[in-house]
Computed example of a mutant assay.
Amino acid sequence: MSEDREKVRFLSGDAECVAWHYPGTNGACVIMTPGGGVTKEPGTDPFATRFHEAGFTVLALDYRHFGESGGRPRQVIRVKEQLADWQAAIDFAPTLPNVDPAKLAIWGFSLSGGHAVRLAARNPRLAAAIAQTPLADGRVAALKTMRHRKPLPMLRLLGRGLRDAVGSLLGKQPLLVPLAGEPDTVAFVTTPDGRDGDRALNPGNRYPEWQQTIAARTPLWFGFYRPGRAAPRVQCPLLILVCDQDQTAFAGPGVRTARRAPRGELVRMPGGHYEPFLDGHEQAAEAELSFLHRHLVPTR
Rank of each mutant, 00 (worst) to 15 (best):
A287C: 04
F188K: 01
F56M: 07
L162N: 04
R294H: 10
G108S: 11
R229L: 01
D4S: 09
Q212V: 08
E3P: 06
L119E: 04
V297D: 04
P208F: 12
E282S: 08
A128L: 12
T33A: 14
L83Y: 08
Q75L: 12
D198W: 05
A230Q: 02
G24A: 08
P23T: 11
N98P: 10
F56Y: 14
H148D: 14
A60C: 11
R268S: 07
G161H: 06
G252Q: 07
Q211I: 13
E81I: 11
K144I: 00
E68G: 14
Y22A: 03
P178H: 11
T49M: 02
S12H: 12
E3H: 10
A230K: 00
H293Y: 09
R260I: 06
K40V: 09
G70Q: 05
G252H: 02
A230Y: 03
E68D: 15
R9E: 13
L292M: 15
G204W: 06
A285F: 09
H65L: 06
A102K: 15
K103H: 09
G272D: 02
P97G: 14
F66N: 04
G13D: 08
A127H: 10
R74Q: 13
P134W: 05
G271V: 00
C243E: 01
V242Q: 01
W210D: 12
R50L: 07
G108T: 10
R259K: 14
Q212R: 15
R118T: 13
G228H: 04
T190K: 12
G138D: 05
H21F: 15
T95I: 08
G55W: 07
H52T: 07
H148T: 02
V140D: 08
L241T: 12
Q75F: 13
L170I: 03
P203D: 05
M269E: 04
T191H: 13
L241Y: 13
V297T: 15
D4W: 03
A19I: 10
F291T: 05
A129Y: 09
T33D: 06
G223K: 00
K40G: 04
V177L: 07
C17N: 14
A15H: 10
D244C: 03
K103W: 06
T213N: 03
V76M: 12
I240H: 12
W86T: 11
R229G: 01
G159P: 00
L296D: 08
A142G: 02
G113D: 14
V76R: 15
D246C: 06
V58T: 14
P178M: 10
R64H: 09
F10H: 14
Q211G: 07
L143A: 04
D198V: 05
K80G: 10
F222K: 01
T39A: 01
A165R: 13
S110C: 15
T257W: 11
P134G: 05
P34Q: 08
D246H: 03
D100M: 06
R268D: 00
V297N: 08
G272E: 01
D184Y: 02
D85T: 13
G114R: 06
V189E: 01
V166H: 13
